[in-house]
C-alpha cells in the first residue's frame, strides 16, 4: 500500500503580517479544498491512502463534507483519507508529532500546505522522504504557489516509484547552533530553508520580520530575483540558484550609514530600501560565525531564537530535504511512456 502524508497547518496565514504588510489571508476552507484537489491528482497514480495531521474542525470538517459531495464522473477512485491518532494542541508541536508519525509509518512522500514556517518544521523531521511544499499565502519563499491537482499528479508519480529520483531536488538549508555564555540557558539548534537573519528586536514576540532598519546580517540558501521576503535583499546583490552548492552572506546596516543600498520587496506590498555593508558567497559545508549582537535570529522570516551579545552563534550551509520538482517530474512523464499516467 502506498501512502502520502499531508500536513495542512490550520494556523498559517493569520500572523501579524496582515497588519505590517499587504499579506493576504488564506482561509481554512481553501486549505481543505486544496487537499481534496491534491487527492484527485494522487488518485491518478493509484495512491491508496492519504494520511493527515488531525486539526480542529476547520480543515478536517470542511474536507469531510467535500469528500462526501464532490466526485467528478470518470475520475479515479480517491485515496482513502486517514487522520493520525494524536492530540490537537494547535501549536507547532502538532506538525512535529505528525511528521514523526508519518516517517515511522513509512509514507512515500509528504505534502506540506503552509508557509515557510510549516515547511521548516516538516523539513526538520522528514529525512529523505520527498517533500512537496505548497504555499498557502503570499509571504513565502520556499513553498511554491501551485495548483494542488497538478502537484498531486507529480507527487503521485514520485510516491508510486514511477518518476524515479530524477524529479527530486536536493535543497540546501542553513543550520544554526547558538551556544549560550550564561549558565542555565540551553544551546539551541534549528534550521532555515531560505533565509536566516539577525534582527535587533530582542523578543520573538509576534515573530514576523517586516522591517529592514534593524537587520544586521542575512544568510540565504538561494536568492531568486523574483522572490519576496528577506532573500530578495540577497537576490538584488547576487542572485544564487536554488539547489546549488552556494549560498550568500550579506551584512547589513541602517540605510543612512550604509555604503550601498538596494530597493527590495521585503513583504507583500512593502518595497523599501535596505542598507548593505558587504556580501559574499558561501560554500556548502562552510560555517559562518554571526557577529555578537543583542537581538534575535529569524528563520525564514520569523523570529525564533532570542540572542544575547555574549552568545556564540554558528551558521552552516548544509544539505536540506529532497523536494519534488513538479515541472521536472511531469516533463519526464510526458517524454517517457513508462512513467506516464496513461499506463497506470
Amino acid at each position: 500500500m502506498t501512502s502520502v502524508g499531508v500536513i495542512a497547518n490550520p494556523a498559517s496565514g493569520r500572523d501579524v503580517r496582515r497588519l505590517t504588510s499587504g499579506a493576504s489571508v488564506f482561509d481554512n476552507a481553501e486549505k481543505a479544498s486544496m487537499v481534496l484537489r491534491l487527492m484527485h491528482g494522487l488518485a491518478a497514480s493509484g495512491i491508496d491512502e492519504v494520511v493527515m495531521m488531525p486539526t480542529a474542525p476547520s480543515v478536517a470538517g470542511v474536507l469531510r463534507r467535500q469528500l462526501a459531495t464532490r466526485q467528478p464522473p470518470g475520475s479515479a477512485p480517491l485515496p482513502a483519507l486517514r487522520f493520525l491518532d494524536q492530540p490537537v494542541t494547535e501549536t507547532a508541536r502538532d506538525s512535529e508529532r505528525a511528521v514523526a508519525a508519518m516517517v515511522a509509518e513509512g509514507v512515500a512522500a509528504i505534502v506540506g500546505l503552509g508557509g515557510d514556517g510549516t515547511q521548516r518544521l516538516i523539513a526538520r523531521g522528514c529525512g529523505e522522504i520527498p517533500l512537496c511544499p505548497l504555499s498557502t499565502g503570499t509571504n513565502n519563499a520556499f513553498p511554491e504557489m501551485r495548483e494542488a491537482t497538478v502537484a498531486g499528479l507529480a507527487v503521485g508519480l514520485v510516491a508510486s516509484g514511477r518518476a524515479g529520483t530524477d524529479g527530486l531536488r536536493r535543497e540546501a538549508a542553513l543550520h544554526v547552533r547558538v551556544e549560550r555564555a550564561a549558565g542555565d540557558r540551553d544551546p539551541v539548534e534549528d534550521l532555515a530553508l531560505v533565509d536566516l537573519a539577525v534582527t535587533g528586536q530582542r523578543f520573538v514576540g509576534a515573530r514576523a520580520v517586516s522591517r529592514a532598519d534593524d537587520l544586521r546580517e542575512l544568510l540565504v540558501t538561494h536568492a531568486s530575483p523574483s522572490a519576496i521576503g528577506l532573500s530578495s535583499v540577497a537576490a538584488a546583490l547576487d542572485p544564487v540558484r536554488r539547489g546549488g552548492r552556494q549560498g550568500l552572506h550579506v551584512r547589513l546596516a541602517p540605510v543612512a550609514a550604509a555604503p550601498r543600498r538596494v530597493v527590495v520587496p521585503l513583504a507583500p506590498g512593502v518595497v523599501v530600501p535596505v542598507g548593505v555593508r558587504d556580501h559574499r558567497r558561501i560554500a556548502l559545508g562552510e560555517a559562518v560565525e554571526l557577529e555578537p549582537a543583542d537581538g534575535s535570529i529569524a528563520l525564514d522570516g520569523e523570529r525564533e531564537i532570542e540572542l544575547r551579545r555574549d552568545d556564540r552563534a554558528l551558521v552552516r550551509l548544509v544539505a536540506g530535504p529532497r523536494t519534488v520538482d513538479v515541472d521536472a517530474v511531469l516533463r519526464a512523464a510526458a517524454h517517457e511512456p513508462r512513467r506516464a499516467l496513461a499506463t497506470a
Partner: peptide, 14 residues
C-alpha cells in the same frame, strides 16, 4: 484579522 499567542506579553504587545 490577526491571531497571537495570548500567553505571550511580547507577542500581544507587538
Amino acid at each position: 484579522g490577526v491571531v497571537v499567542d495570548g500567553h505571550d506579553f511580547f507577542a500581544v504587545h507587538e
